[in-house]
Design a binder for these strands. Structure first.
Length: 271
DNA sequence: ACTTCGACCTGTTGGC
DNA sequence: TGCCAACAGGTCGAAG
């Protein structure tokens, strides 16, 4: 679920429900996430409210006067707005009970996500300080990719999934963007031309942007327990389609592993 | 400085 | 049907 577009969708979905609503209580049922949820969170947050939510990469930053809540959804996390009497399931690890009866609920079966509570200005936080540019801003351009790729032997797919290079490009969209750009994912990042990076940057932006607009549709039934919207899958050209036919040339798509991640591409269309 | 790989978890799927 | 291995939308941090 949590690709950058989903995180962005989550941000948009929860914001109107939590904005300036006083937090009544924080219920932590399971504090062992990727890092332990600090006890200072349930101790200090109640009585305060969030006035702003930022996103940095796939991290959500919920700002209050008392501190900043940093949330990452990992591989399987989600945030939903539920009614206060909604029974908690096995993987509903945290409830942030809001004034007015709604609850911001954090669910994460695999517990690869995190929920941290910070006082200091968050720009200098160790998890955020080394992150690369946001893919949808003008800071992310071919010059940047070209420059930081020089001398690097890593596969271009692994390279664009490196959060120090650019944030928010997960496995699905790395596969999709490389297909759209016609680039073989195995190519060494350091040997790719400026011109090719122009195309890749364009494709990454376009695919993420499109996906956010589809994610925006998910927004409507956000508070419903709802599963997958299904829009994504229809738009995917290669991800999850190994062994099926290329939509451009009809050849069989190849599936390999790169950096332990499943990688699908067309040997004809991607060079 | 860069690359690779194990680790963190549970749930689902596919082969035998 | 059951069992078991492999894999899943992430990414940090250690080791080479």
């Amino acid at each position: 679920m949590p690709e950058l577009p989903e995180v962005e969708t989550t941000r948009n979905g929860i914001y109107p429900h939590i904005k300036n609503k006083r937090v009544e209580e924080v219920i932590v049922r399971q504090k062992k996430l990727r890092w332990e949820i600090p006890d200072t969170l349930p101790a200090e947050l109640p009585g305060h409210s969030f006035n702003h939510i930022d996103r940095r990469g796939k991290y959500l930053l919920l700002h209050s006067k008392k501190g900043i809540l940093i949330i990452h959804l990992g591989m399987s996390g989600s945030l939903r707005i539920v009614a206060q009497d909604s029974p908690a399931g096995k993987h509903d690890h945290v409830d942030i009970v809001l004034q007015g009866g709604k609850v911001l609920r954090y669910t994460d079966p695999r517990r690869f996500g995190c929920m941290l509570w910070e006082q200091a200005p968050v720009e200098s936080h160790p998890l955020l300080i080394k992150l690369g540019p946001e893919p949808l801003t003008k800071d992310f351009d071919y010059k940047h990719l070209f420059k930081v790729s020089r001398g690097r032997s890593a596969a271009v797919k692994t390279f664009i999934m490196d959060s120090k290079v650019v944030v928010g490009v997960g496995n699905i969209y790395a596969n999709e963007a490389l297909f759209m750009a016609g680039i073989n994912p195995k190519r060494a990042a350091g040997k790719i031309s400026k011109q090719t990076y122009v195309s890749l940057v364009h494709c990454i932006k376009e695919i993420l942007q499109k996906s956010i607009s589809v994610g925006g549709t998910t927004l409507r039934d956000f508070t419903n327990s709802g599963g997958e919207p299904g829009y994504f899958k229809q738009a995917l050209s290669v991800y999850g389609r190994g062994g099926e036919n290329c939509l451009k040339c009809n050849r069989v798509l190849k599936e390999i592993r790169l950096g332990q991640r499943s990688t699908v591409y067309c040997t004809q269309c991607q060079r």
